[in-house]
Design a binder for these strands. Sequence first.
DNA 1: CAACTATTTGGCCAAAGCGCCAAACGGAAT
DNA 2: ATTCCGTTTGGCGCTTTGGCCAAATAGTTG
Lengths: 113, 113
Amino acid sequence: MDAKTQARFEARARILKALAHPSRLFMVDQLSHGERCVCELTAMVGSDMSTVSKHLSVLKSAGVVADEKRGMQVYYRLKMPCVLRFFDCVGEVIEQSAREQMAMANISGTKTR
Amino acid sequence: MDAKTQARFEARARILKALAHPSRLFMVDQLSHGERCVCELTAMVGSDMSTVSKHLSVLKSAGVVADEKRGMQVYYRLKMPCVLRFFDCVGEVIEQSAREQMAMANISGTKTR
DNA sequence: CAACTATTTGGCCAAAGCGCCAAACGGAAT
DNA sequence: ATTCCGTTTGGCGCTTTGGCCAAATAGTTG
């Protein structure tokens, strides 16, 4: 794997890594319905505001969201709505896995994984 | 965020986390061209075979790839080709970010990030 | 069976990620 | 100017990840 290829996949991995957290996915999902301020997201996610803020900054530096201070709050919005397409495929993977585990359980009493 | 929602996003995050590593993305990309055995992937990636094997097992338990032992080797194949669609969007994000950084650099000598 | 090959597993260690708390910041209101 | 509010940043423990090595496995070949 030459340096250029390496770099390309590292860049891709950075984006995916930014998305790879339940709270962050949830926030992306919320932002797909329109912009939200940190306080709204904090209330929805249910963790400390500092935690939420850090999650948002991860998404921001990955280029997935953008922020804008307006009045007293900071509003975040989804910058790359195409990330929503991920969810379709991810959903498929999950359902497929679920189906297979069912099938496995039926064929034998063998425990999956 | 109720428990059900929580669970849904955790499941999604697991998949993305499995993909969120340069070597694993590279392997997924390779597998999109057809199945490969561990030794082939090891040669391409350039790390220890044990490392590659562990990466593959991460992808496998996420349900992204499947393995099959044939002859002396274990062949892995892409189980959910839809993950390839991720790359398009990820590419967009990267290009978009690059463009913005360029613009930033032009407007002022301000350092980005 | 012994030697070999391809792969997986366990162990170790360094590095990264996560969540909370407390402190710093910046703008708004009094 | 002081206080207040929403937000970000720093720091600290804790868990997880990643990569190498060495050892265990499994199937093959001589």
